[in-house]
Design a protein around this nucleic acid. Structure first.
Lengths: 253, 253
DNA sequence: TAGAGTCGTTGATCTAGATCAAATTGGCAA
DNA sequence: TTGCCAATTTGATCTAGATCAACGACTCTA
């Protein structure tokens, strides 16, 4: 690799236009000129180590964050002091929009692995949205999509048995990851069994047992965090043909 | 009542400025000039009979609706064809924002009783939001508030026992109704036991038993749909000091 | 590289709340 | 009014999945 190429590479990495997540992230559907405006607003790259916080419940809203790599869990703290995970976030998703209502974050976002994000100061994003109708519409879309996702998760929690919940969760992860260019049938879960259990309203033991059970039935291959989906159709059947997108963060498409 | 008064009354009823829900509804925080613009956009008054639909899953997004009187339930249909209620909506709340993401409604809104709404064409609202920064911010707030509410309901569904769920639901209804000027400790539930059970992910029988139980313990007085809260503190305790706002519609404050 | 702590798995038991069954009440159409 | 249907209540039973318990496997630290 020549010096020239190296320079180009670093240049590539620093603009929305050339970001590999371009069509997943906020810029989707913006015209070139508008993209430049957005580009100017974004504070690029910030690295967060595993178990560190991107923001915490109660933090005042300064920025929203586009995830470049890694993953996060977002959770509430209930009155007993326990966490309730409300979503896992993957690259290309926008995190932190929850705070707009109260001007402060209503949940905490913790890195599940070393991750990197683009920081977007919110006040500038909001004023930019007034100048770029398309961006305003995009933001409305993101928020309303998130509501839909949460509602689907509510449905799952309110009336689906454990098996359906887990199948639906795995299917959702598979779909989201495949959108990001990863294999649909083979991936690593960055979150613990406990985190999955918490999100789905079940006990860790039940998650573990179901995974073993899925493996016995040749639906999955489970090797610690590494999941291989062997029979997608069967999994879909168990999931009632509905994959939950438990992102609790905003996805464009 | 003189003719003159009648005329004035009808005039009163037809403008946001004079609506009794003024400070609950969308106009909150807008300046007089901006209010006039909003006023011009609103198609006033539409009456919906019990069990009729305000919109249905799949309908294309034309308008959002501000509830003037009555109440609605909003629900999804799961893959087995069963409904999953995601919220109940009361006067002063905005219904239909769910549709922005896909440009079509992702849930169905059905009147629980004869109700009346103000219809607000969405395209005009969106363009108005670009001209009125405060309105744009207001809309962002509404959407993000709804996300918060849904997340709190998720927490309830994922980790709280039946008793806490119902107590929290009743507390939420009480709080919302009292904001609307009704008594906090005495109200009518417009939805059936079955609807409550569905929202909270429980069986009708459990709802019924718990209500009887609450009554035995002098927490409540239950007479069919009419609920009187006798011991608010105790109810709060059972609810873990968290009231779910299961509005699935947007509330300003 | 030993030791401690965390995470995951598996088995045994228990229980909150579902499901099934039946009686009671109320609302409403004819 | 009567009769019917839907909603609610109450009781009896059953079960999915929680909880408790014990152990094996990884991972991090020193």
């Amino acid at each position: 690799m020549t010096d020239n190429q190296i320079i180009k590479l670093s240049e590539l990495k620093s603009h929305c236009q050339n970001c590999s997540l371009y069509d997943l992230c906020l810029p989707m559907g913006l015209k070139t000129g508008d993209l430049d405006s957005l580009d100017n607003v974004i504070k690029r790259r910030q690295s967060i180590n595993k178990n560190n916080f991107l923001f915490r419940l109660g933090d005042s809203l300064k920025s929203v964050y586009a995830i470049r790599s890694g993953s996060f869990k977002t959770y509430l703290i209930n009155t007993d002091g326990n966490e309730q995970i409300v979503g896992f976030s993957l690259p290309g998703e926008l995190l932190g929009m929850d705070a707009i209502g109260e001007n402060q974050h209503t949940c905490t976002a913790k890195a599940l692995e070393t991750s990197s994000v683009c920081e977007i100061p919110f006040d500038r994003l909001e004023s930019l949205a007034r100048d770029i109708p398309n961006l305003q519409h995009q933001l409305f879309r993101l928020l309303s999509k998130e509501i839909q996702q949460d509602q689907n998760l509510m449905l799952l929690l309110a009336q689906m048995p454990a098996e359906t919940r887990l199948a639906s969760f795995l299917l959702g992860m598979s779909e989201r990851l495949s959108k990001r260019g990863y294999a649909a049938n083979e991936f690593n879960l960055s979150m613990s069994r406990g985190d999955i259990a918490n999100l789905l309203g079940m006990a860790v033991e039940t998650i573990s047992r179901l995974l073993s059970h899925f493996q016995e039935n040749s639906l999955l291959n489970v090797e610690r965090k590494h999941i291989t989906i062997l029979d997608m159709d069967k999994l879909r059947q168990l999931a009632n043909h509905s994959a939950v997108n438990c992102s609790n963060s905003s996805q464009v498409s």
